[in-house]
Design a binder for these strands. Structure first.
Lengths: 339, 339
DNA sequence: TACCGTCATCGAAACGTTTCGACTAAGCGT
DNA sequence: ACGCTTAGTCGAAACGTTTCGATGACGGTA
């Protein structure tokens, strides 16, 4: 493989000049630059990533941190990954996957101490995420998908739950629904302060209030049985509900089954709207679920962009909130006329 | 950050001795080794990945190639990714994500020419995959998840479709089913020679034959409508079918709906068995689907292990086939008594 | 005693870049 | 005609490893 030395020789200049021409670190005359680029072309030269990294102390490699435990990665998270990789590539960076127990400090330290990565993107951020402390100690720049409780000046992108739930409720109210339930994650998850669960519910309540409708809330474990139980509870307490906003992908099958067992059809008797889920999930059901799709592409992309900007001394603001977009499928319809 | 130099000084030896002690490249006396490791510990020393790569010409970074187009990554593929990353980590390697159009030679060349990666793992391999040629030209070692048509001596892991379909059919026959349908991918996909579609069907036919049962075959597009159409066709031609083996995740919702529209219940009237799918998918339905789960962990892991072995001059055999494992859930039951 | 092979260690040269200080020649104001 | 800046280039020293050839000490064999 051709090295910078070969290019220099062929162009009749020294290697430092070639380096300046490539990186624009110092001025190079128009004429010389042309000769150098010609030589590079002729030789099919590509800078050697490792050598460059060693000398410049910048690897142009980013780590994507995710924790395998927890609820496990889903389709939505998968899109973060691929979109983040694309975004990184566009900016000349690479993305390495780093799956690590969320509390394993040694493991995270290991990652950075080798000098392998310039920065990190954190997925599945928790309200009180221990990784953030580790990263700060290591002085490793990072961006988050999600937010911590405090979120003080850290780089992050997150779903705009306020706006998302507001849009969701508006859609239902627009169809004539007045008694709407919010099916959240489990109470344990909510109590632990998991961001989406907390912010989602808050957004829902605010939206309901603004719309002058009546809201019910119910929690469900992240599995079909949890969904079924939740519907049982809900229908027992509030049999007059006509629409359910769900923010719990895995509970959905149970919800649907429980409704059909009660001879309630979707969307004639009850409208269903899935929030912060992926189209792939929504289309698994019959009828396909109307949903507020997560802007995973944007989240993945923005997080990388923030990080790269910071690394290249173009400090980014961060803290952006992007709303989910409403996609109407078959599970929402006009509220039933009579009760 | 401590360097090898610091370690050497503290241990009272030269850097080359330290290097030998770390890598085991040459013998080092027990006493010296102890002193060196002590020094490393004291200083919290970690070899600098880039420097090591530059000097040894081995980066210990592997690329994971996937093409964004196609049918899009699903939950099963996601598991490949995370498991491959874990396996790589265990062996001291890193995994970078490289999403590339399957035919984009320049892009693949770009990847290797920088000397960034030692080898590649290919996901979603096609029967006649152009990437393989590129990689061979570049002399970049690689392993595949899936197989090409020829598969001549290339490193690969794949699902053992013969064994898997055989187990699936046996399970159903054991429940008394005698007329079993195989719901494949679409005819187009099958005709294009997509490996799983071809090998799956072949395995099914062989298993049916061996079991002395009757087999029907039907194709479906990878979406709910496709599934519904397929059931329509199947029930029209062969209303006596009592079990369906499905190898088409995305068509499943349509299948279930079409069955219920015909007042056929699962599993009382018809047993459903999903092949080569992920538990996550199987549990989305009511009743949860009995399935042959893809050993994604093993596939991801093995592919990395093969590649690493080859890189470290322990040539691997490759070409392993691993079967899916049967997980009985609620969608299969005894064949209906009468017809 | 002289010689040879091992074992353990040393010193120095790579690996392919970036970057710093220095040098030259040209352009400027005075 | 003088010094001063500036654009353009050079040479050499990093960056932190691995690896090769050489060296010295030691024990065994002739």
């Amino acid at each position: 493989m051709a090295t910078i030395k070969d290019v220099a020789r062929r162009a009749g200049v020294t290697i430092s000049t070639v380096s300046y021409a490539i990186n624009g670190t110092r001025p190079v005359s128009e004429k010389t630059r042309a000769v150098i680029f010609q030589a590079m072309d002729d030789l099919g030269y590509r800078p050697h990533a490792m050598a460059r990294a060693l000398a410049s102390k910048r690897t142009r490699i980013l780590a994507l941190l995710f924790s395998p435990l927890e609820r496990g990665l889903g389709l939505t998270e998968l899109e973060f990954v691929t979109c983040a990789a694309d975004a990184a590539k566009e900016r000349g960076y690479h993305l390495v996957l780093w799956s690590t127990e969320i509390h394993d400090e040694e493991d995270i330290r290991h990652l950075s101490s080798q000098g392998l990565v310039d920065g990190a993107v954190l997925m599945e951020v928790q309200e009180d995420d221990p990784r953030i402390g580790f990263l700060q100690d290591l002085k490793l720049p990072f961006a988050m998908i999600g937010r911590t409780a405090a979120g003080e000046g850290l780089l992050s992108v997150d779903i705009d739950f306020g706006r998302t739930l507001s849009d969701a409720v508006d859609h239902l109210v627009g169809l004539g629904h007045q008694r709407i339930a919010f099916l959240n994650q489990s109470r344990e998850v909510y109590d632990s302060g998991y961001g989406p669960a907390v912010r989602g519910l808050a957004g829902f309540e605010a939206a309901i209030q603004r719309a002058g409708a009546t809201g019910y809330r119910v929690f469900a474990h992240a599995n079909p049985a949890g969904g079924a139980d939740a519907i049982g509870e809900l229908m027992n307490d509030h049999p007059d509900v006509t629409a359910i906003v769900m923010m719990n992908d895995r509970a959905i099958p149970g919800v649907i089954q429980a409704l059909s067992e009660r001879s309630l059809t979707v969307p004639e008797d009850v409208s269903l709207l899935s929030v912060a889920s992926s189209p792939r999930v929504a289309e698994m059901f019959v009828p396909a679920l109307t949903s507020m799709d997560v802007p995973s592409e944007e989240l993945g992309r923005l997080s990388v962009e923030y990080l790269v900007s910071t690394l290249e001394d173009r400090p980014a603001e961060g803290g952006d909130l992007v709303p989910c977009t409403l996609v109407v499928r078959g599970s929402t319809g006009s509220a039933p006329q009579s009760l």
